[in-house]
Simulated scan of single mutants.
Amino acid sequence: MKPELTLHGQTLQLNRYPIRQHETLQAWDAADEYLINQVEDMKQQQALTLDAERPVLIMNDSFGALACWFARQGQTVSVGDSYIARTASQHNLAANALPDIAFADCLAPVPPQTQLVLLKLPKNNRLLVWQLTQLCAALPEDCVVIAAAKARDIHTSTLKLFEKHLGPTRTSLAVKKARLIFCQPDKNLAAALPEAQRWAVPEYKLTLTNHANVFSGESLDIGARLLLEHIPQDPVLKHIIDLGCGNGVIGLQAARLNPQAKVTCVDESYMAVASCRENADLNLTNPAQLEAKVDNCLESMANSDADLVLCNPPFHQQNTITDHIAWQMFCDAKQSLKQHGRLIVIGNRHLGYDGKLKRLFAKVQKIAQNPKFVVYQAEK
């Protein structure tokens, strides 16, 4: 597939990240195109004039299409929760010889005097409410807010969230199965940001804090519950990695079972890593035992010294169902493990992870299962 987006006489070379040979998926979608066309049409009709001294705020940019388009149009700030999306944006900016822009995670404050907000709807309504509440409290009344998504993902309930948390809302017609949402900020709706979810896992004596975009942020998911039962307690373990850590529950239990071990929790979500750090401080006798960091799988930790990697892989990237993330996790785990180190991974039975693991590891065995999930152990 040609990675070229051409609109209004301008062509951008855009790639998803990580770059794969024979990529079949684009780094942009119809919602990106609709947003770009809408802004350019408004400028041409003099319905929108951008001030080079005021920020344009892009939220939840998938792979940098919007960042690249608006990079030359003044101060541009890209806000999102995905390390992979940020890295993709940075790579695409460099590939197109475009100016650097500012990046921030979702927990950072909204830039003052923002003049235009372009928001791609996140999958998680908890994150959407967080972002709308942030915007309502911070945006000047003359700010233009335009959101976009696939038409099938914009429901009456979505529009009600905009009305409740940001201001008067209307929608566009659908174009290429995408739709826009126009919203006028109303300061009378300004409210305090939602509290992070906090709930207990009494059987493990844990209390877990979960920021808005953390997977299974309102209860312990059934996959994690099964994996928790099969975390080894072994005095020879010196370095344990919780790969795709979410709120850190697996890493926390590994740390408590193995107080002699350093535990590294890794996720590509900034909110997940922030939650994990807070949970370590809340639950561990020695919080310094656990490090929480953002990364693309274990990209920055190749040839590490890990004795054990624990992993509950996702099977989607942004809104696309895919198995390449699990494959990268398994490959990176192998690179990060010592000889005879172990990977313990859980997955839905239908995903067939054992086949992938046997292509990489000398010894793979099933160590647990229930009607929905299987736990495998692979030894390097």
Rank of each mutant, 00 (worst) to 15 (best):
D305S: 14
K262Q: 13
D323N: 14
C297S: 15
V273E: 06
G244W: 10
L257C: 03
V273S: 05
F315C: 11
N283I: 15
S275C: 07
V266K: 12
N296E: 06
H324C: 00
V273G: 03
H316L: 11
I250A: 00
L308A: 06
Y270R: 05
V345L: 14
R256Y: 01
C276Q: 01
H340V: 11
N279L: 06
N319P: 00
G251S: 10
T320F: 11
W327Q: 15
A333N: 12
Q318K: 09
P259Q: 13
L257R: 07
Q335P: 00
I325E: 01
G347L: 11
L252I: 15
Q339V: 14
G347D: 09
N279P: 04
T320Q: 10
V249C: 02
T264D: 13
Q260G: 04
K262F: 02
D323W: 01
V345H: 03
C265F: 04
M301G: 01
V273N: 06
N258E: 07
R342Y: 01
C297L: 05
Y270W: 14
A261D: 01
K334H: 15
P314M: 02
T264V: 14
Y270Q: 05
Q335F: 02
Q289K: 05
L351M: 15
K334W: 09
V263I: 15
I325S: 02
Q335A: 14
L298D: 13
D295A: 13
D307S: 11
A272G: 11
G341I: 15
A302W: 12
C265P: 04
V309P: 00
D267E: 09
G341P: 05
E291H: 12
S269L: 07
I325W: 01
N312I: 13
P313M: 10
A255F: 02
E299N: 01
N303L: 08
R277L: 04
G251F: 03
L337N: 04
P313C: 08
I346R: 11
N303C: 03
A254S: 08
L310Q: 01
P313Y: 07
E278D: 12
A254P: 07
Q339A: 13
H340W: 03
E299A: 02
L343P: 00
G251I: 11
R342D: 10
K334P: 06
K262H: 11
C265V: 03
P287E: 02
R342W: 02
N312M: 12
A280M: 01
D332E: 08
A255H: 06
Q260S: 08
P287I: 00
N312K: 10
C331E: 13
N283R: 07
G251N: 12
V294H: 04
S269T: 09
R342V: 14
V249K: 02
K293I: 12
C276R: 04
G246K: 13
V309E: 03
D267C: 04
D295Y: 05
T264C: 06
H316D: 04
G341C: 12
K293P: 01
T264W: 09
N312S: 12
Y270K: 05
L282W: 09
S300H: 13
N296F: 00
T320S: 07
N283Q: 07
R349I: 12
L337E: 01
N279K: 04
K334L: 15
N312C: 11
T264A: 05
